[in-house]
Amino acid sequence: MSLADDQTLGAAAARDEDEIRRARAARIEKIAKWALPVAIMALAIMGWGWIVRANEIPHYILPGPNLVWDSLVNDWAILIDAAYLTGWITLLALLLAVVGGAGLAILFNQSKMLELSFYPYAVILQVTPVVSIAPLIFIYVDSKVAGMLLCAWLVAFFPVLSSTTLGLNSVDHNLRDLFRIYGATRWQRLRFLQLPSALPYFLGGLKIAGGLSLIGAVVAELVAGTGGIGSGLAFRIQEAGYRLNIARMFAALALVAAMGVFIFAALSFLSHLLLKNWHESAVAREK
């Protein structure tokens, strides 16, 4: 009896140790996920400062990180205004990309003839670099805002269109049969079956479109120049470059990057919220 007890206890203790090791590894990984990139960034900034100081590089060629920080603080008013503008264009373009991309996908899905007629042109628009279309757009579109939105939309809508199209077509065939057996209308099939099936695909496309609409907005600003509507971050970068204010170039660049990261994080979070109950990609699993 006591021997048996000892044995089970021993086995339990051994298993526990294994579990503890696993838990510790998981904890370390969780911290490292944040700590490592931050440490790398800190090291890189320190190394950058050291290189600038050691080689006495003049600030109009490469400013040290302290100068960039100063510029960020001193030029904050200008930069934040610029960030607002770029941010707004990006968000609006993303919104239009969602409406246009998902709307076209649904339309194409409902009519094969429409899809066959227009899908190739969506592809052509997508593969033509926006930088090469942008100057033309600003010739024909008077409003700077409209032109910028159009540029950003052109780059951003395609991932939404193609991923939503894929999603609408990847309905489980048994579910499709079931809907037919129960006499579902076209609209019911779209609403209750195809749209929910397409949601994970759509959200994947949305994440890509978020980054692309920022790129589109930046490109549009560079092509459009300033005038009337104030200046965005990309314009500020260009302008600072003309004045050899390299520190401000870096400061504005940091803001653009931060904006990109923010958009990606926000869209990832949205995707997690919408899928967490049911989709494998959002369900936490122990390893």
Binding site: D172, N174, L175, D177, L178, F179, I181, Y182, G183, A184, Q188, F192, L193, P196, L199, N277, W278, H279
Partner: peptide, 30 residues
């Protein structure tokens, strides 16, 4: 409609819907 019920080899449930919403489906479509 409703005279026929089918069960496939796979459960064929809508993963985004709860159990009761899945069972509601034949009625919902009606």
């Amino acid at each position: 409609r409703g005279d026929l019920g089918v069960v496939f080899q796979e459960p064929t449930l809508m993963p985004w819907a709860t159990v009761s919403q899945n069972v509601w489906l034949p009625f919902r479509l009606a």
